[in-house]
Simulated assay, not measured.
Amino acid sequence: MAFDESGHDEPTLDELQLDALGELFNLGVGRAANSLSLIVKDEVELSAPSISFAYPSQITQALLDSEFKELSMVAMDFSGPFEARAVLLFPERNALAILSHMLDPNMPPEELSEFEQEAMCEIGNIILNACMSALADEFGVEFMGSLPEHHFSDTESLPLFGGDQKEVLLILQIHLSIRQERINGHLLFLLSVSSLHALLTCVDSYLTRLGIR
């Protein structure tokens, strides 16, 4: 770990580690897209995620996109070789757009919102478990996951991150497309510094098994 100007431990990954994480999460996202396609009965495309890091206190700035005001999010806790709180986060209007493809497209918005929490939990369960199961399969480990929890929030008052500077956010930006409609979202993984080290140890072991390290 290096230190930035504010004294934070700055996550420093080498190119091999970043590439490996990108490939592993891309594998998980691909599995999730296949499962979602069965639900909406149409092709779902999830882009290869881009990876960045931030601290809980910086998450508002990290999400200062014009889309990310009113939020619909699903959180799950995972334990295993490392612990992580995994969060799937969409702007509220994008969440409703996804639901419109899962349910009757002619359903009025006020009726759609009645199903939002249950449907978003199902979507979050699929995407977050697909990502963690991809890591588990490739690392040769096991994770235990909690039941998904749905939350409404806004960019300024995210309820899931308390600003503990001993924790790090691994941020994956994803683009979900259904019937040519592009929907932006984020996958967030909240890790303690020790869990981040454990994750990177798993990545290094994985690279060694592949003969890359």
Rank of each mutant, 00 (worst) to 15 (best):
residue 1 M to S: 12
residue 4 D to I: 05
residue 4 D to M: 02
residue 4 D to A: 03
residue 5 E to K: 13
residue 5 E to Y: 14
residue 9 D to G: 04
residue 11 P to G: 06
residue 12 T to W: 12
residue 13 L to W: 08
residue 14 D to R: 01
residue 15 E to R: 14
residue 21 L to T: 02
residue 21 L to N: 03
residue 22 G to R: 12
residue 23 E to H: 01
residue 28 G to P: 08
residue 28 G to I: 01
residue 31 R to D: 07
residue 34 N to R: 10
residue 34 N to L: 12
residue 39 I to E: 00
residue 42 D to Q: 09
residue 44 V to Y: 04
residue 46 L to A: 06
residue 50 S to V: 03
residue 51 I to C: 03
residue 53 F to T: 03
residue 55 Y to T: 04
residue 57 S to L: 07
residue 57 S to T: 10
residue 61 Q to W: 05
residue 63 L to W: 01
residue 63 L to Q: 00
residue 65 D to C: 07
residue 66 S to G: 10
residue 67 E to Y: 08
residue 69 K to Y: 13
residue 70 E to Y: 11
residue 72 S to F: 02
residue 72 S to W: 01
residue 73 M to D: 03
residue 75 A to P: 00
residue 75 A to Y: 07
residue 76 M to C: 04
residue 78 F to Y: 15
residue 78 F to M: 01
residue 82 F to S: 03
residue 84 A to Y: 02
residue 84 A to M: 10
residue 85 R to K: 13
residue 87 V to Q: 03
residue 88 L to N: 09
residue 89 L to C: 13
residue 90 F to S: 03
residue 94 N to G: 14
residue 94 N to M: 10
residue 97 A to G: 08
residue 100 S to Q: 13
residue 103 L to T: 05
residue 104 D to I: 01
residue 105 P to C: 03
residue 107 M to H: 00
residue 108 P to G: 01
residue 109 P to L: 10
residue 110 E to I: 07
residue 110 E to V: 10
residue 112 L to F: 00
residue 115 F to G: 01
residue 115 F to A: 14
residue 117 Q to G: 12
residue 118 E to R: 14
residue 119 A to V: 09
residue 121 C to G: 15
residue 122 E to N: 06
residue 123 I to L: 07
residue 124 G to R: 10
residue 132 M to Q: 00
residue 133 S to M: 12
residue 134 A to E: 00
residue 134 A to Q: 06
residue 139 F to Q: 04
residue 139 F to I: 02
residue 142 E to P: 04
residue 144 M to T: 14
residue 149 E to H: 14
residue 151 H to K: 06
residue 152 F to Y: 07
residue 154 D to A: 00
residue 156 E to H: 00
residue 156 E to C: 00
residue 157 S to M: 02
residue 160 L to I: 11
residue 164 D to R: 00
residue 165 Q to S: 15
residue 165 Q to M: 13
residue 168 V to W: 06
residue 172 L to P: 03
residue 172 L to F: 11
residue 175 H to F: 12
residue 176 L to I: 02
residue 176 L to C: 10
residue 180 Q to E: 15
residue 180 Q to I: 06
residue 180 Q to P: 04
residue 183 I to C: 05
residue 185 G to Q: 04
residue 188 L to I: 15
residue 191 L to M: 09
residue 192 S to K: 13
residue 192 S to A: 14
residue 193 V to G: 11
residue 196 L to N: 07
residue 201 T to L: 15
residue 201 T to I: 14
residue 202 C to T: 06
residue 204 D to E: 11
residue 205 S to V: 14
residue 205 S to A: 15
residue 207 L to G: 09
residue 210 L to H: 11
residue 210 L to W: 04
residue 212 I to W: 05
residue 213 R to C: 08
residue 213 R to Y: 06
residue 213 R to P: 07
